[in-house]
Amino acid sequence: SVRENGEVKEIVWQLDMQKGKEYQLEYTFDAPDISPEFYLLGPLSIGSSVGSGQAWQEARYWQIASDATETLSPDALLTQTNLTGSITDVQDDPDSPDSNWLTAGVNVATTARVSFPTPTGAPRDGADLQEFRILIRKTATNNGKTDDTYTVHLYEDGNLRQSTIASGSGVPADPSSTVVSATWDSSNLTSNDGSGVEAYITTTPEAGGSPTSRGSIEVGAFEWNVDYSTNNNPVLSSVKDGPDPSQVGNTVTFYADWNDQDAEGVNLFVCDQSGGNQAGCPSSTYCYTSDHGTSDPMTCDYTTSSTGTKTYYAYVCDNEPTCSGELSGTFTVNAATPVSKIFDGMFMLDYQGIIK
């Protein structure tokens, strides 16, 4: 049954559970069609209702991120071969185009490569999550053959990242046209933010019939349908250090209390100057972590080397990467305490506590 408790809905199973037996309980959750948005499920509890003596309850909520999409038009026509026109001829919607095209003569191989602006959020990795849509047609003058071909490739800043993400033949002739869907995986990119993405289409004309009327392929529009993640900056709520004061040569541990709404791991940076970013500290680094861990508090250690009161600036960064704001603090390092010892009847002082 489903019970409503204010803004919370509880799914309740009435069961007589016996020790040693396995039970499988299932439900389906359909999140509202709102993007970007963030939803919480759970926690599951066994026993009475939550907050009134349940026997067991999950330690935390399940988190669901509803990702966003956007459609981008190209911002530059980088190369074109045997085509006449400009970037404005291919910036319209492939599904409702205007009358402007990159046009071609007969019996020529054509190519066009365009770049796109950086999307609002980082493209999500995964097979077929990203899509180019390209409007193409064959010239009105043609031999009616179906051996013309096209191939679409993914480029980034002029470099091939994924070859042949779509291909085909037998393109309809003007005044008809077709929209090519070319899907790809953003894990093939080198940048996390999707900057530098390019679509590249190469074509060959008809091979049969009279050479003077072999149809060539023209291009009418490009677009990139971006599936991207909406990222929330991690939050650093407090940072502590200890032991404080410490002594030269001893270890100071920094403890960072943090959270990330997107349930991502973070790296901790502790710097001697303000202004660090995901690449690291602007000057010297007291310590840092590098594995995008999930421990909370997150810790790192610094071995002291000089005396005085030291100021530090701490922050955390997730793997998008975005960073929290900085929190600062101080720790004090004193000289090592002299240690007196008697060795073979001799009185010695050693600041390291070691008799040599």
Results as ranks from 00 to 15, higher is better:
94 P>G: 08
217 I>M: 05
85 G>V: 13
124 R>V: 15
215 G>P: 00
111 T>W: 10
245 P>I: 15
236 L>V: 10
245 P>D: 08
330 T>H: 10
204 T>R: 05
295 S>L: 09
293 G>C: 13
86 S>H: 09
109 A>D: 08
238 S>Y: 07
175 P>L: 05
108 V>K: 09
125 D>S: 07
167 S>I: 09
351 Y>C: 05
234 P>K: 06
199 A>M: 02
320 E>K: 07
113 R>T: 15
310 K>D: 04
74 P>Y: 08
138 K>T: 13
323 C>L: 05
263 A>T: 09
316 V>R: 01
204 T>Y: 06
189 L>Y: 09
22 E>H: 06
294 T>L: 14
230 T>S: 14
167 S>C: 03
198 E>I: 00
92 D>Y: 07
271 C>V: 03
293 G>D: 05
189 L>E: 06
210 S>Q: 14
309 T>H: 09
262 D>N: 14
113 R>L: 15
296 D>F: 04
14 Q>E: 14
211 P>I: 11
266 V>N: 03
85 G>S: 12
274 S>E: 08
198 E>K: 04
150 Y>P: 01
224 W>N: 03
281 C>F: 10
299 T>Q: 03
231 N>D: 11
303 T>I: 15
207 A>K: 12
161 R>H: 13
13 W>D: 02
107 N>E: 06
134 I>V: 03
318 D>I: 05
340 S>F: 12
169 S>G: 15
238 S>V: 03
199 A>T: 01
260 D>K: 02
153 H>F: 01
220 G>F: 12
240 K>P: 06
45 S>D: 01
232 N>M: 01
39 Y>K: 08
180 V>Q: 04
330 T>W: 08
89 D>G: 09
241 D>C: 03
352 Q>P: 00
152 V>Y: 02
151 T>E: 10
197 V>Q: 06
217 I>D: 02
222 F>L: 04
356 K>A: 12
87 I>C: 02
16 D>N: 14
318 D>S: 00
271 C>D: 05
165 I>A: 03
6 G>V: 12
191 S>F: 14
335 A>S: 14
252 V>I: 11
3 R>I: 15
194 G>A: 12
239 V>C: 04
101 W>Y: 03
